[in-house]
Each structure stands twice: as C-alpha cells, then as structure tokens.
C-alpha cells in the first residue's frame, strides 16, 4: 500500500487496468493471509485473487486461473566473479558444491529433485541469512528467482555478489513459475472475457510501465498458457 492508501503491485495494477478495459472497476480490496486466499475466494468473500499466485495443477483443481501475467525464471547469486563457475543447478550437482536457498521455496525442491545431495542444500529462513552463508563460505551459490535476485543485487551495501543469467529449466524440467489471477471455477465465462481483454493489454506501454515500476522486465513474460500449466 502506498502513502495514499492505494494498493500497489504488479498484479493489482494489471487487474485494475484490464477491468477498466472491460468497463469494470474494483469495488472492494481485501488484504488476507496467503493461506486464506483460495478458501475466501471459494466462499464468495471476494471475486478474484490478485497475489501473483503461481499456477500449478493442484491449484487448478481449486480455482479458475486467468492466462498468466508473468513467468519467473530461476537464477543463482554467487560471490563476485563467480569463482567456482556455477551457472546452473547442474554445475552445483557436478561439482558437489553447496547451494543456499530459502526454506520452503521451489528452489529447494528443484535442487533435491535434480539429485543434489541433501547435505549440499542449505536452507535459510530468508535472503539475508542465505547471503551471509555465501559471504562466510558456508555455501557457494544462492538459488533464488530472477526478480528477487535483481532486487537483492541492487540493494547490496557492497557490490560483492553477482547473479548468473536466468535459466528456464533445471534438469530438463521447467524452472519458470507462472503467476495468474485466480477466480471461482463457476465464473469461467467471466474469466474468458477477462482473458480476451488481457490479451489486448499485455505488451502495451501501460503494461510494460507497470512491470518496470516493480522490478519486472521483458524477461518475465509468460512462456506457457494456463492450459499447459494446468496439465489440460
């Protein structure tokens, strides 16, 4: 929320723009915990979730997702100059290097899924503690999504870290997390209209301006459709 009391963020701003294209407006904004977003939607307490929610088959069974508005690639943050030449998770696996990651994130799951040894995947509660482990030499790279990495690098007190070129696959599996708006399943007809309007909005100067204002780049454009992501 900004100083004027307006809710800001890529999703909320894109939502309002697309609704405006449809001749509609937001009548109520509800802030809620992550775990309550889908239950509240299904209970009819609001009509749409605009929270950068990642599309996956499990959630597709619960809600009707719009087409995705972004696709976030994975990357690694390394000590300056990337001394071990770690550019992919596969490099970490082949070198027996140590990966730092925030607990509960997709990065932990991807590393273990690839076959990186459990003892070589160090979990931390947040980014600052993961970066501290890198500085102390207790980990060799920090696995994180690309927009977060750009933000972390930009805000470092000293320029002692680098991020590698973002990648879209880990071990042959997609490493791009797609975010979309979530609606109730019974509102699919509305979602179809919404998608039609959103197709006309994505790529416009207004769309690019919203994304750039929040640290997103053209690199975060979606690469899959909601049907592909839901496994339909």
């Amino acid at each position: 929320m900004n100083d004027s009391g307006d809710v800001i963020g890529t999703d909320v701003e894109i939502l309002k723009s697309v609704l405006s294209e449809m001749g509609l407006e937001v009548s109520e904004e509800v802030a809620t915990d992550w775990g309550n977003l889908i239950p509240g939607l299904k209970a009819g307490r609001y009509d749409v979730v605009a929270a950068g929610m990642f599309v996956n088959p499990g959630r597709c069974a619960e809600v009707a997702f719009s087409e995705p508005t972004f696709g976030i690639k994975a990357t690694l943050i390394t000590p300056k100059g990337n001394p071990k030449g770690l550019n992919r998770y596969e490099d970490i696996l082949s070198q027996g290097a140590v990966l730092a990651a925030v607990s509960g994130t997709a990065q932990v799951a991807a590393a273990l899924d690839l076959g990186i040894a459990r003892e070589n995947v160090q979990e931390f509660p947040d980014a600052p503690t993961a970066l501290a482990a890198l500085r102390a030499g207790r980990a060799d790279a920090f696995g994180v999504d690309a927009p977060s990495a750009r933000q972390i690098i930009a805000n470092l007190p000293e320029a002692d870290m680098d991020m590698v070129e973002p990648f879209d696959e880990i071990g042959g599996k997609s490493a791009v997390d797609h975010g979309a708006f979530a609606f109730r399943k019974e509102d699919q007809a509305f979602v179809d209209r919404f998608n039609e309007a959103m197709r006309g909005f994505i790529g416009t100067d207004a769309y690019i301006a919203i994304n750039e204002a929040h640290g997103m780049t053209a690199d975060e454009a979606p690469v899959k459709s909601v049907s592909e992501l839901c496994g339909q």
Partner: peptide
C-alpha cells in the same frame, strides 16, 4: 446461495464491481 455465487460474475461485476483479494 450466498454472496457473489448467487449470480454469475458477469452480472454482478457490471452492477457491483469486482471484489479483489491480495496477499497481506
């Protein structure tokens, strides 16, 4: 049927607007 489920969102959005939830 309660709330917005009583009618299709196509109808309620036009008359009542759209209620949005975001992550706090």
């Amino acid at each position: 049927v309660t709330g917005a489920n009583a009618q299709d969102l196509n109808d309620t959005a036009a008359s009542d607007g759209v209620r949005v939830a975001y992550f706090n």
